[in-house]
Nucleic acid binder design. Structure first.
Length: 488
RNA sequence: CGGGGUGUGGCGCAGCCAGGUAGCGCACCUGCUUUGGGAGCAGGGGGUCGCCGGUUCGAAUCCGGCCACCCCGACCA
Protein backbone atom coordinates (compact mmCIF):
# COMPACT_ATOMS: atom_id res chain seq x y z
CA UNK A 1 0.00 0.00 0.00
CA UNK A 2 1.14 3.50 -0.67
CA UNK A 3 2.18 5.50 2.35
CA UNK A 4 -0.35 8.10 1.35
CA UNK A 5 -3.17 5.66 1.72
CA UNK A 6 -1.83 4.61 5.04
CA UNK A 7 -1.56 8.06 6.55
CA UNK A 8 -5.08 8.76 5.44
CA UNK A 9 -6.39 5.83 7.41
CA UNK A 10 -4.22 6.16 10.49
CA UNK A 11 -5.19 8.26 13.48
CA UNK A 12 -3.36 11.52 14.17
CA UNK A 13 -0.19 10.60 16.10
CA UNK A 14 -0.52 11.29 19.80
CA UNK A 15 2.88 12.93 19.90
CA UNK A 16 1.76 15.44 17.30
CA UNK A 17 -1.60 16.48 18.65
CA UNK A 18 -3.25 14.78 21.60
CA UNK A 19 -6.65 16.38 20.98
CA UNK A 20 -6.61 15.35 17.35
CA UNK A 21 -5.55 11.86 18.32
CA UNK A 22 -8.34 11.63 20.90
CA UNK A 23 -11.04 12.81 18.50
CA UNK A 24 -9.81 10.43 15.82
CA UNK A 25 -9.83 7.46 18.17
CA UNK A 26 -13.30 8.18 19.53
CA UNK A 27 -14.85 8.56 16.10
CA UNK A 28 -12.83 6.05 14.09
CA UNK A 29 -13.16 3.32 16.71
CA UNK A 30 -16.89 4.06 16.51
CA UNK A 31 -17.26 4.77 20.22
CA UNK A 32 -19.21 7.96 19.69
CA UNK A 33 -20.11 10.70 17.29
CA UNK A 34 -20.91 14.36 17.76
CA UNK A 35 -24.58 15.19 18.13
CA UNK A 36 -26.19 18.03 16.18
CA UNK A 37 -26.48 20.37 19.17
CA UNK A 38 -23.27 21.77 20.55
CA UNK A 39 -21.77 19.74 23.32
CA UNK A 40 -23.93 16.68 22.72
CA UNK A 41 -22.72 13.27 21.65
CA UNK A 42 -24.17 10.03 20.42
CA UNK A 43 -22.71 7.00 22.12
CA UNK A 44 -22.54 4.35 19.41
CA UNK A 45 -23.07 0.64 20.05
CA UNK A 46 -19.38 -0.15 20.54
CA UNK A 47 -18.98 2.72 23.02
CA UNK A 48 -22.23 1.89 24.75
CA UNK A 49 -21.15 -1.73 25.13
CA UNK A 50 -18.18 -0.43 27.12
CA UNK A 51 -20.51 1.68 29.23
CA UNK A 52 -22.74 -1.34 29.89
CA UNK A 53 -19.76 -3.39 31.04
CA UNK A 54 -18.63 -0.57 33.27
CA UNK A 55 -22.11 -0.02 34.60
CA UNK A 56 -22.71 -3.67 35.42
CA UNK A 57 -19.44 -4.14 37.24
CA UNK A 58 -19.83 -0.93 39.22
CA UNK A 59 -23.44 -1.69 40.03
CA UNK A 60 -22.43 -5.11 41.37
CA UNK A 61 -20.13 -3.32 43.78
CA UNK A 62 -22.91 -0.96 44.88
CA UNK A 63 -25.22 -3.87 45.56
CA UNK A 64 -22.49 -5.69 47.45
CA UNK A 65 -22.17 -2.67 49.74
CA UNK A 66 -25.89 -2.56 50.48
CA UNK A 67 -27.18 0.01 48.03
CA UNK A 68 -30.37 -0.07 45.98
CA UNK A 69 -31.21 1.72 42.74
CA UNK A 70 -34.02 4.20 42.19
CA UNK A 71 -34.93 6.90 39.69
CA UNK A 72 -35.46 10.59 40.37
CA UNK A 73 -36.90 13.25 38.03
CA UNK A 74 -34.96 15.10 35.37
CA UNK A 75 -36.74 18.36 36.17
CA UNK A 76 -36.15 20.13 39.45
CA UNK A 77 -37.94 23.29 40.62
CA UNK A 78 -35.44 26.12 40.35
CA UNK A 79 -36.07 27.17 43.92
CA UNK A 80 -34.65 23.89 45.22
CA UNK A 81 -31.21 24.74 43.95
CA UNK A 82 -31.28 28.00 45.81
CA UNK A 83 -31.82 26.41 49.20
CA UNK A 84 -28.18 25.47 49.66
CA UNK A 85 -26.14 28.63 49.19
CA UNK A 86 -22.83 27.17 48.05
CA UNK A 87 -24.58 24.61 45.88
CA UNK A 88 -26.45 27.20 43.78
CA UNK A 89 -23.39 29.34 43.48
CA UNK A 90 -21.40 26.41 42.21
CA UNK A 91 -23.94 25.29 39.64
CA UNK A 92 -25.67 28.49 38.54
CA UNK A 93 -23.38 29.15 35.55
CA UNK A 94 -23.95 25.73 34.01
CA UNK A 95 -27.67 25.27 34.50
CA UNK A 96 -30.12 24.62 31.67
CA UNK A 97 -33.48 26.08 32.66
CA UNK A 98 -36.89 25.29 31.21
CA UNK A 99 -39.09 28.38 31.23
CA UNK A 100 -41.73 27.36 28.70
CA UNK A 101 -43.67 24.17 28.26
CA UNK A 102 -47.01 23.15 26.81
CA UNK A 103 -47.03 26.39 24.90
CA UNK A 104 -47.05 28.50 28.04
CA UNK A 105 -44.63 30.14 30.38
CA UNK A 106 -44.16 28.10 33.55
CA UNK A 107 -45.12 29.58 36.90
CA UNK A 108 -41.80 28.39 38.25
CA UNK A 109 -38.87 27.58 35.97
CA UNK A 110 -37.52 24.03 36.08
CA UNK A 111 -33.84 23.29 35.96
CA UNK A 112 -32.61 20.23 34.14
CA UNK A 113 -30.76 18.36 36.90
CA UNK A 114 -27.04 19.13 37.02
CA UNK A 115 -26.92 16.64 39.94
CA UNK A 116 -29.69 15.48 42.27
CA UNK A 117 -28.71 16.44 45.82
CA UNK A 118 -31.57 18.90 46.11
CA UNK A 119 -34.43 16.78 44.86
CA UNK A 120 -33.12 13.75 46.73
CA UNK A 121 -32.89 15.90 49.85
CA UNK A 122 -36.50 16.99 49.40
CA UNK A 123 -37.69 13.39 49.16
CA UNK A 124 -35.47 12.09 51.95
CA UNK A 125 -36.96 14.72 54.23
CA UNK A 126 -40.33 13.18 53.49
CA UNK A 127 -39.24 9.58 53.91
CA UNK A 128 -37.11 9.83 57.03
CA UNK A 129 -38.61 10.38 60.44
CA UNK A 130 -36.95 7.90 62.80
CA UNK A 131 -33.45 6.60 63.44
CA UNK A 132 -35.01 3.29 62.37
CA UNK A 133 -35.25 4.66 58.83
CA UNK A 134 -31.48 5.10 58.65
CA UNK A 135 -29.24 4.68 56.91
CA UNK A 136 -30.86 5.14 53.52
CA UNK A 137 -28.58 4.03 50.71
CA UNK A 138 -29.83 4.85 47.21
CA UNK A 139 -28.03 5.03 43.92
CA UNK A 140 -29.26 6.62 40.70
CA UNK A 141 -28.20 5.72 37.17
CA UNK A 142 -29.14 8.67 35.04
CA UNK A 143 -27.82 11.51 32.96
CA UNK A 144 -27.29 15.09 34.03
CA UNK A 145 -26.91 18.35 32.16
CA UNK A 146 -24.26 20.96 32.74
CA UNK A 147 -23.88 23.68 30.14
CA UNK A 148 -20.26 23.41 29.15
CA UNK A 149 -18.25 26.05 27.37
CA UNK A 150 -15.76 23.63 25.90
CA UNK A 151 -17.09 20.17 25.25
CA UNK A 152 -14.98 17.10 24.53
CA UNK A 153 -16.51 13.73 23.85
CA UNK A 154 -16.80 11.60 27.01
CA UNK A 155 -14.66 14.05 29.00
CA UNK A 156 -16.98 17.03 29.05
CA UNK A 157 -20.31 17.03 27.28
CA UNK A 158 -23.44 19.00 28.01
CA UNK A 159 -25.34 15.87 28.92
CA UNK A 160 -23.48 12.93 30.37
CA UNK A 161 -24.27 9.48 31.70
CA UNK A 162 -23.28 8.72 35.26
CA UNK A 163 -24.41 7.31 38.55
CA UNK A 164 -24.93 9.36 41.67
CA UNK A 165 -25.23 7.74 45.06
CA UNK A 166 -27.09 9.56 47.80
CA UNK A 167 -27.10 8.34 51.36
CA UNK A 168 -28.41 9.64 54.66
CA UNK A 169 -27.05 8.62 58.05
CA UNK A 170 -27.67 9.24 61.74
CA UNK A 171 -24.28 10.71 62.51
CA UNK A 172 -21.01 11.94 61.12
CA UNK A 173 -19.09 8.75 61.84
CA UNK A 174 -21.55 6.70 59.80
CA UNK A 175 -21.63 9.16 56.92
CA UNK A 176 -17.86 9.51 56.83
CA UNK A 177 -17.49 5.74 56.80
CA UNK A 178 -19.85 5.61 53.81
CA UNK A 179 -17.98 8.39 52.01
CA UNK A 180 -14.70 6.55 52.41
CA UNK A 181 -16.23 3.16 51.59
CA UNK A 182 -17.45 4.37 48.20
CA UNK A 183 -14.19 6.21 47.64
CA UNK A 184 -12.48 2.85 48.08
CA UNK A 185 -14.97 1.19 45.72
CA UNK A 186 -14.11 3.72 42.99
CA UNK A 187 -10.40 3.32 43.50
CA UNK A 188 -10.60 -0.46 43.44
CA UNK A 189 -12.92 -0.38 40.43
CA UNK A 190 -10.61 1.92 38.47
CA UNK A 191 -7.65 -0.37 39.07
CA UNK A 192 -9.34 -3.74 38.69
CA UNK A 193 -11.73 -2.95 35.88
CA UNK A 194 -10.36 0.05 33.95
CA UNK A 195 -6.75 -0.91 34.72
CA UNK A 196 -5.96 2.64 35.84
CA UNK A 197 -3.92 3.10 39.02
CA UNK A 198 -5.37 6.23 40.58
CA UNK A 199 -3.89 8.84 42.84
CA UNK A 200 -6.42 8.95 45.64
CA UNK A 201 -6.84 11.81 47.99
CA UNK A 202 -8.88 14.71 49.31
CA UNK A 203 -9.73 17.87 47.41
CA UNK A 204 -8.47 21.19 48.71
CA UNK A 205 -11.23 23.60 49.83
CA UNK A 206 -11.05 25.46 46.52
CA UNK A 207 -11.66 22.28 44.51
CA UNK A 208 -14.38 20.83 46.72
CA UNK A 209 -17.87 19.96 45.45
CA UNK A 210 -20.28 22.87 45.88
CA UNK A 211 -22.00 22.23 49.19
CA UNK A 212 -19.69 19.48 50.48
CA UNK A 213 -17.74 19.45 53.72
CA UNK A 214 -15.11 17.09 52.38
CA UNK A 215 -14.54 15.75 48.85
CA UNK A 216 -12.44 12.72 47.98
CA UNK A 217 -11.23 12.08 44.48
CA UNK A 218 -9.47 9.55 42.32
CA UNK A 219 -7.18 11.19 39.78
CA UNK A 220 -5.80 9.30 36.83
CA UNK A 221 -2.77 10.22 34.78
CA UNK A 222 -3.36 10.38 31.06
CA UNK A 223 -0.69 9.59 28.44
CA UNK A 224 0.05 13.30 28.02
CA UNK A 225 0.79 13.69 31.72
CA UNK A 226 -2.42 15.54 32.48
CA UNK A 227 -4.72 14.55 35.33
CA UNK A 228 -8.32 13.43 34.94
CA UNK A 229 -10.68 13.48 37.89
CA UNK A 230 -12.42 10.15 37.51
CA UNK A 231 -14.71 9.75 40.48
CA UNK A 232 -15.60 11.72 43.59
CA UNK A 233 -17.12 10.91 46.96
CA UNK A 234 -18.47 13.67 49.19
CA UNK A 235 -19.26 13.99 52.86
CA UNK A 236 -21.97 16.64 52.86
CA UNK A 237 -22.23 17.05 56.64
CA UNK A 238 -25.60 18.46 57.58
CA UNK A 239 -25.53 21.13 54.85
CA UNK A 240 -28.26 19.58 52.75
CA UNK A 241 -30.06 18.17 55.77
CA UNK A 242 -30.44 21.69 57.14
CA UNK A 243 -31.43 23.12 53.76
CA UNK A 244 -34.09 20.45 53.17
CA UNK A 245 -35.09 19.55 56.71
CA UNK A 246 -33.84 16.01 56.58
CA UNK A 247 -34.36 15.13 60.24
CA UNK A 248 -35.05 12.11 62.38
CA UNK A 249 -35.95 11.40 65.97
CA UNK A 250 -33.22 9.57 67.86
CA UNK A 251 -33.62 7.04 70.68
CA UNK A 252 -33.97 9.88 73.19
CA UNK A 253 -36.82 11.36 71.15
CA UNK A 254 -34.62 14.28 70.12
CA UNK A 255 -34.89 15.71 66.62
CA UNK A 256 -31.56 15.43 64.76
CA UNK A 257 -30.29 16.43 61.35
CA UNK A 258 -29.08 13.62 59.13
CA UNK A 259 -25.56 13.52 57.82
CA UNK A 260 -25.57 12.87 54.07
CA UNK A 261 -23.14 11.76 51.41
CA UNK A 262 -23.06 11.67 47.64
CA UNK A 263 -20.71 10.05 45.19
CA UNK A 264 -20.51 9.91 41.44
CA UNK A 265 -18.68 8.33 38.58
CA UNK A 266 -19.46 9.16 34.96
CA UNK A 267 -18.94 7.99 31.40
CA UNK A 268 -15.88 10.18 31.62
CA UNK A 269 -14.28 6.97 32.88
CA UNK A 270 -14.43 5.82 29.26
CA UNK A 271 -12.47 8.90 28.30
CA UNK A 272 -10.01 8.09 31.06
CA UNK A 273 -9.59 4.59 29.68
CA UNK A 274 -8.94 5.90 26.18
CA UNK A 275 -6.42 8.48 27.36
CA UNK A 276 -4.68 6.28 29.90
CA UNK A 277 -4.02 3.27 27.67
CA UNK A 278 -4.29 4.33 24.03
CA UNK A 279 -1.44 4.62 21.54
CA UNK A 280 -0.77 5.70 17.96
CA UNK A 281 -2.53 2.62 16.61
CA UNK A 282 -5.70 3.63 18.40
CA UNK A 283 -7.68 2.36 21.34
CA UNK A 284 -6.28 -0.05 23.92
CA UNK A 285 -9.06 -1.59 25.99
CA UNK A 286 -8.61 -3.30 29.33
CA UNK A 287 -10.14 -6.79 29.03
CA UNK A 288 -12.85 -6.20 31.64
CA UNK A 289 -14.21 -3.26 29.64
CA UNK A 290 -13.65 -4.77 26.19
CA UNK A 291 -16.88 -5.66 24.35
CA UNK A 292 -14.81 -8.25 22.46
CA UNK A 293 -11.93 -9.66 24.45
CA UNK A 294 -10.92 -11.92 21.58
CA UNK A 295 -11.59 -11.57 17.88
CA UNK A 296 -11.10 -14.55 15.61
CA UNK A 297 -10.27 -13.88 11.96
CA UNK A 298 -10.81 -16.86 9.67
CA UNK A 299 -8.55 -16.80 6.60
CA UNK A 300 -8.81 -18.54 3.26
CA UNK A 301 -11.03 -18.66 0.22
CA UNK A 302 -13.72 -20.90 -1.05
CA UNK A 303 -13.90 -24.22 0.75
CA UNK A 304 -10.88 -23.30 2.83
CA UNK A 305 -12.68 -20.27 4.20
CA UNK A 306 -15.68 -22.43 5.04
CA UNK A 307 -13.39 -24.78 6.94
CA UNK A 308 -11.52 -22.10 8.88
CA UNK A 309 -14.77 -20.28 9.65
CA UNK A 310 -16.32 -23.48 11.01
CA UNK A 311 -13.24 -24.07 13.17
CA UNK A 312 -13.33 -20.44 14.33
CA UNK A 313 -16.94 -20.93 15.42
CA UNK A 314 -15.99 -24.05 17.39
CA UNK A 315 -13.17 -22.12 19.05
CA UNK A 316 -15.53 -19.25 19.86
CA UNK A 317 -18.00 -21.64 21.46
CA UNK A 318 -15.23 -23.08 23.63
CA UNK A 319 -14.19 -19.56 24.66
CA UNK A 320 -17.76 -18.58 25.51
CA UNK A 321 -18.01 -21.59 27.76
CA UNK A 322 -15.22 -19.99 29.75
CA UNK A 323 -17.04 -16.64 29.78
CA UNK A 324 -14.70 -15.04 27.30
CA UNK A 325 -16.35 -12.41 25.10
CA UNK A 326 -15.41 -13.45 21.60
CA UNK A 327 -16.34 -12.38 18.09
CA UNK A 328 -15.74 -14.29 14.88
CA UNK A 329 -15.17 -11.67 12.19
CA UNK A 330 -16.89 -13.04 9.10
CA UNK A 331 -17.13 -9.73 7.30
CA UNK A 332 -16.32 -9.72 3.60
CA UNK A 333 -13.04 -7.87 4.06
CA UNK A 334 -9.41 -8.82 3.69
CA UNK A 335 -7.63 -10.23 6.75
CA UNK A 336 -5.25 -7.26 6.79
CA UNK A 337 -8.17 -4.87 6.97
CA UNK A 338 -9.59 -6.75 9.94
CA UNK A 339 -6.28 -6.81 11.79
CA UNK A 340 -5.97 -3.06 11.54
CA UNK A 341 -9.61 -2.48 12.34
CA UNK A 342 -9.55 -4.47 15.57
CA UNK A 343 -6.26 -2.91 16.62
CA UNK A 344 -7.84 0.51 16.17
CA UNK A 345 -10.75 -0.71 18.28
CA UNK A 346 -8.47 -1.89 21.07
CA UNK A 347 -9.38 -5.58 21.19
CA UNK A 348 -6.95 -7.30 23.61
CA UNK A 349 -6.39 -10.56 21.70
CA UNK A 350 -6.61 -11.50 18.05
CA UNK A 351 -6.67 -15.05 16.77
CA UNK A 352 -5.83 -15.77 13.13
CA UNK A 353 -7.03 -19.05 11.74
CA UNK A 354 -5.88 -20.02 8.26
CA UNK A 355 -5.60 -23.21 6.21
CA UNK A 356 -1.97 -23.72 7.28
CA UNK A 357 -2.99 -23.43 10.92
CA UNK A 358 -5.80 -25.95 10.56
CA UNK A 359 -3.28 -28.31 9.02
CA UNK A 360 -0.95 -27.86 12.00
CA UNK A 361 -3.72 -27.90 14.60
CA UNK A 362 -2.84 -24.41 15.82
CA UNK A 363 -4.14 -20.86 15.76
CA UNK A 364 -2.04 -17.73 15.61
CA UNK A 365 -2.41 -15.50 18.66
CA UNK A 366 -1.40 -11.85 18.92
CA UNK A 367 -2.08 -9.33 21.64
CA UNK A 368 -2.81 -5.62 21.23
CA UNK A 369 0.00 -4.33 23.44
CA UNK A 370 2.81 -5.67 25.57
CA UNK A 371 4.42 -8.08 23.12
CA UNK A 372 5.83 -6.12 20.21
CA UNK A 373 8.78 -6.85 17.96
CA UNK A 374 11.50 -4.33 17.02
CA UNK A 375 9.18 -2.68 14.52
CA UNK A 376 6.51 -2.20 17.14
CA UNK A 377 4.27 -4.81 15.59
CA UNK A 378 2.49 -7.42 17.70
CA UNK A 379 4.33 -10.73 17.77
CA UNK A 380 2.39 -13.71 16.49
CA UNK A 381 2.47 -16.97 18.39
CA UNK A 382 1.15 -20.31 17.21
CA UNK A 383 -0.93 -21.88 19.98
CA UNK A 384 -2.34 -25.42 19.81
CA UNK A 385 -6.05 -25.13 19.09
CA UNK A 386 -6.81 -27.60 21.84
CA UNK A 387 -5.21 -25.36 24.48
CA UNK A 388 -6.30 -21.93 23.33
CA UNK A 389 -9.68 -21.67 25.02
CA UNK A 390 -8.58 -23.13 28.32
CA UNK A 391 -5.68 -20.72 28.62
CA UNK A 392 -7.52 -17.58 27.60
CA UNK A 393 -8.97 -16.45 30.96
CA UNK A 394 -5.50 -16.49 32.49
CA UNK A 395 -4.08 -14.62 29.50
CA UNK A 396 -6.75 -11.95 29.87
CA UNK A 397 -5.96 -11.54 33.56
CA UNK A 398 -2.26 -11.28 32.83
CA UNK A 399 -2.96 -8.73 30.10
CA UNK A 400 -4.99 -6.68 32.57
CA UNK A 401 -2.20 -6.81 35.13
CA UNK A 402 0.32 -5.75 32.51
CA UNK A 403 -1.81 -2.74 31.60
CA UNK A 404 -1.98 -1.70 35.24
CA UNK A 405 1.77 -2.13 35.62
CA UNK A 406 2.43 -0.17 32.46
CA UNK A 407 0.17 2.69 33.56
CA UNK A 408 1.71 2.65 37.03
CA UNK A 409 5.24 2.79 35.61
CA UNK A 410 4.25 5.63 33.31
CA UNK A 411 2.71 7.55 36.20
CA UNK A 412 5.74 7.04 38.42
CA UNK A 413 8.05 8.18 35.64
CA UNK A 414 5.99 11.34 35.21
CA UNK A 415 5.60 12.25 38.86
CA UNK A 416 8.20 14.23 40.78
CA UNK A 417 8.61 15.92 44.13
CA UNK A 418 9.45 19.57 43.56
CA UNK A 419 10.43 22.37 45.93
CA UNK A 420 10.74 25.46 43.81
CA UNK A 421 8.51 27.14 41.28
CA UNK A 422 10.81 26.61 38.29
CA UNK A 423 10.98 22.87 38.85
CA UNK A 424 7.23 22.92 39.48
CA UNK A 425 6.50 24.67 36.19
CA UNK A 426 8.72 22.28 34.27
CA UNK A 427 7.16 19.27 35.94
CA UNK A 428 3.50 20.12 35.32
CA UNK A 429 4.27 20.49 31.62
CA UNK A 430 4.42 16.72 31.37
CA UNK A 431 3.27 15.19 34.64
CA UNK A 432 2.34 15.47 38.29
CA UNK A 433 4.22 17.77 40.67
CA UNK A 434 4.17 16.86 44.35
CA UNK A 435 4.72 19.99 46.36
CA UNK A 436 4.13 21.72 49.65
CA UNK A 437 1.43 24.36 49.53
CA UNK A 438 0.16 27.04 51.91
CA UNK A 439 -3.50 26.27 51.20
CA UNK A 440 -4.39 29.87 50.43
CA UNK A 441 -6.97 29.96 47.60
CA UNK A 442 -5.38 33.15 46.25
CA UNK A 443 -2.05 31.36 46.05
CA UNK A 444 -3.73 28.43 44.26
CA UNK A 445 -5.18 30.86 41.76
CA UNK A 446 -1.80 32.45 41.14
CA UNK A 447 -0.26 29.06 40.49
CA UNK A 448 -3.02 28.24 38.02
CA UNK A 449 -2.55 31.56 36.24
CA UNK A 450 1.16 31.12 35.74
CA UNK A 451 1.44 27.36 35.30
CA UNK A 452 -2.12 26.24 34.36
CA UNK A 453 -1.82 23.57 37.04
CA UNK A 454 -4.33 23.06 39.85
CA UNK A 455 -4.13 21.09 43.08
CA UNK A 456 -5.61 17.72 42.18
CA UNK A 457 -5.67 16.30 45.67
CA UNK A 458 -3.99 15.90 49.01
CA UNK A 459 -2.99 12.26 48.63
CA UNK A 460 -4.25 9.74 51.13
CA UNK A 461 -0.91 8.01 51.07
CA UNK A 462 2.07 10.18 51.88
CA UNK A 463 4.37 11.04 54.72
CA UNK A 464 3.70 13.91 57.05
CA UNK A 465 5.72 16.85 55.93
CA UNK A 466 5.75 20.60 56.24
CA UNK A 467 7.84 23.52 55.10
CA UNK A 468 7.66 26.54 52.82
CA UNK A 469 4.96 26.75 50.13
CA UNK A 470 6.34 26.02 46.68
CA UNK A 471 4.83 29.23 45.35
CA UNK A 472 4.68 31.90 48.04
CA UNK A 473 7.06 30.51 50.63
CA UNK A 474 4.44 30.69 53.40
CA UNK A 475 3.92 27.90 55.89
CA UNK A 476 2.55 24.74 54.27
CA UNK A 477 -0.93 23.45 55.06
CA UNK A 478 -2.49 19.98 55.25
CA UNK A 479 0.58 18.47 56.95
CA UNK A 480 1.64 16.81 53.74
CA UNK A 481 2.46 17.41 50.10
CA UNK A 482 -0.20 18.19 47.50
CA UNK A 483 -0.38 16.72 43.98
CA UNK A 484 -0.56 19.43 41.31
CA UNK A 485 -1.18 18.88 37.60
CA UNK A 486 -2.81 20.31 34.55
CA UNK A 487 -6.21 18.71 34.35
CA UNK A 488 -8.79 17.82 31.74
C1' C B 1 -15.86 36.11 25.75
C1' G B 2 -10.33 36.55 23.89
C1' G B 3 -6.58 34.25 20.32
C1' G B 4 -5.88 30.77 16.08
C1' G B 5 -8.12 27.72 12.21
C1' U B 6 -11.83 25.46 8.99
C1' G B 7 -16.57 25.40 6.21
C1' U B 8 -16.92 22.20 -1.37
C1' G B 9 -20.83 14.30 -2.19
C1' G B 10 -20.50 10.04 4.04
C1' C B 11 -14.90 11.20 5.34
C1' G B 12 -10.23 13.76 3.85
C1' C B 13 -9.05 17.44 0.32
C1' A B 14 -8.05 20.32 -4.59
C1' G B 15 -10.32 24.23 -7.37
C1' C B 16 -10.77 30.50 -5.38
C1' C B 17 -5.26 34.64 -6.38
C1' A B 18 -6.10 35.80 -12.81
C1' G B 19 -15.29 34.58 -12.47
C1' G B 20 -17.79 30.68 -17.49
C1' U B 21 -22.01 26.35 -13.64
C1' A B 22 -17.36 21.19 -9.85
C1' G B 23 -12.99 17.48 -9.45
C1' C B 24 -9.54 13.87 -6.80
C1' G B 25 -8.57 9.99 -2.96
C1' C B 26 -11.16 6.94 0.51
C1' A B 27 -15.96 5.00 1.49
C1' C B 28 -20.58 3.17 -1.13
C1' C B 29 -23.29 -0.01 -5.32
C1' U B 30 -22.78 -3.99 -9.50
C1' G B 31 -19.74 -7.73 -11.89
C1' C B 32 -15.41 -10.75 -12.30
C1' U B 33 -10.87 -12.03 -10.07
C1' U B 34 -8.94 -12.12 -4.98
C1' U B 35 -8.20 -13.29 0.74
C1' G B 36 -1.63 -15.01 6.20
C1' G B 37 -1.02 -6.91 7.51
C1' G B 38 -5.70 -1.75 5.20
C1' A B 39 -6.93 -6.47 -2.46
C1' G B 40 -7.18 -5.61 -8.20
C1' C B 41 -9.73 -4.36 -12.64
C1' A B 42 -14.13 -2.59 -15.10
C1' G B 43 -18.64 -0.11 -14.72
C1' G B 44 -21.87 3.04 -11.57
C1' G B 45 -24.69 6.24 -7.80
C1' G B 46 -24.23 10.48 -4.87
C1' G B 47 -22.83 17.66 -4.13
C1' U B 48 -28.71 23.95 -2.97
C1' C B 49 -19.87 24.59 -2.95
C1' G B 50 -22.13 26.99 5.53
C1' C B 51 -26.13 31.08 5.19
C1' C B 52 -28.01 35.98 3.50
C1' G B 53 -27.27 39.95 0.43
C1' G B 54 -24.31 42.70 -3.31
C1' U B 55 -21.21 43.28 -8.01
C1' U B 56 -21.63 40.86 -12.91
C1' C B 57 -24.49 38.62 -19.00
C1' G B 58 -22.57 34.85 -15.60
C1' A B 59 -20.19 33.66 -8.63
C1' A B 60 -17.51 27.80 -5.21
C1' U B 61 -14.35 31.87 -7.05
C1' C B 62 -14.86 39.05 -6.15
C1' C B 63 -17.26 42.44 -2.07
C1' G B 64 -20.24 43.05 2.64
C1' G B 65 -22.66 40.83 6.67
C1' C B 66 -23.97 36.62 9.49
C1' C B 67 -23.67 31.56 11.26
C1' A B 68 -21.57 26.95 12.55
C1' C B 69 -17.70 23.80 14.00
C1' C B 70 -12.61 22.62 15.63
C1' C B 71 -8.05 23.96 18.47
C1' C B 72 -5.68 27.05 22.57
C1' G B 73 -7.35 29.96 27.29
C1' A B 74 -11.35 31.55 31.21
C1' C B 75 -15.87 27.54 33.78
C1' C B 76 -16.23 22.31 34.75
C1' A B 77 -17.59 15.11 36.23
Amino acid sequence: MSSQKRSERAVTPMSEDVSGWYNDVVTRAELADRGPAKGTMVIRPYGYAIWELLQRQLDDRFKATGHVNAYFPLFIPESYLRREAEHVEGFAPELAVVTHAGGEELAEPLVVRPTSETIVGEMYAKWISSYRDLPILINLWNSVVRWELRPRMFLRTTEFLWQEGHTAHADEADAMAETLRMFDVYDEFARNVAAIPMVRGEKTPGERFAGAVRTFTIEGMMRDGKALQSGTSHYLGTNFARAFDITYQDRENELQHCHTTSWGLSARMIGATILAHGDDRGLVLPPRLAPHQVVVVPIGRGDQLDATTAEAQRLAAALRERDVRVLVDTRDQSPGFKFNDWELKGVPFRVELGPRDLEAGVAVLAQRVGDEDEDGRARKHPVPLAELAAGMPARLDAYHDALVARAQAFRDAHTAVVDDLDAFTAQVAHGFAVALHCGDPACEARIQETTRATPRCIPSEGDEESGPCVSCGGASAYGRRVVFARAY
